[in-house]
Amino acid sequence: MLQGDHITVRYGRQAVVNDISFRLEEGQWLMLAGPNGAGKSTLIEAIAQGVPYEGTIRWQGEDLRVMKPNQLARRIGVLSQRNAVGYAYTVEEVVGLGRYAYSSGFLSGRRGEDRDHVEQALEMTGLTGLRRASMLTLSGGEMQRAFLAQVFAQDPQVLILDEPANHLDLNYQQQIFSLIRDWLKQPGRAVLSVVHDLSLARRYGTHALLLDRGQCVASGAIGDVMTPEHLNGVYGMDVAAWLRELLSQWE
């Protein structure tokens, strides 16, 4: 569905993403993992056409650079890491913006289909009761769910999520990740996400791309990438021992 070849992103002379390639096929959940500064969010910004890059990113063979923004938005929904609202929009208004790519013009009102998608997205993220709440009054987790609902309302074929668990408590983490997994079960869909929590990545991902200082360390099926050798090398520590130590607190 989505294929990136030799993607390089430079800030000045420094390449923060250096010659990365990936493939995302139907039904896959590709986890982008790596330490801080590995280039994960920058790679996502490149896919979302938010930063200039070298190389090509194609959607079913078509170069994303030549796609109109609304065509891109119908195919790829992006949940950014930095979300904040400056004015007192309601949750429903923000979620409704997810239908922008389907609107035909200034005078066109919200169609029944749009309303259905917004309702469904609010329900999926547990925000139906907050639909009239001002975004300025939401907690970090509620705001994260509101923007996730916007992405669901967008009804894309690929979800690109930068730290979807940000600000979410454990209960919502489980709910949201299960929700995304259920969403992925529909035909013609795929997910690419940045996840810092390696346990979550291991639990929900089907494939992984491990980055370090802008370069690809390993890519492939999640079990082949998330090995002690790869992770210990990238993070500079015994990752499995640390996770075991954390878990042992509960035993």
């Binding site: 979302a48 923004p69 609304n70 938005a73 979300n83 609202v85 913006l97 922008y100 967008q154």
Partner: peptide
């Protein structure tokens, strides 16, 4: 300007968000 009222809503939420929902920013 009035014709761009929906786009301005998207910008007021955030320029990145506007781009992600399909606005030609």
């Amino acid at each position: 300007v009035l014709r761009y009222s929906r786009e301005l809503n998207a910008f007021a939420v955030g320029e990145d968000n506007a781009r992600h929902v399909g606005v030609n920013v």
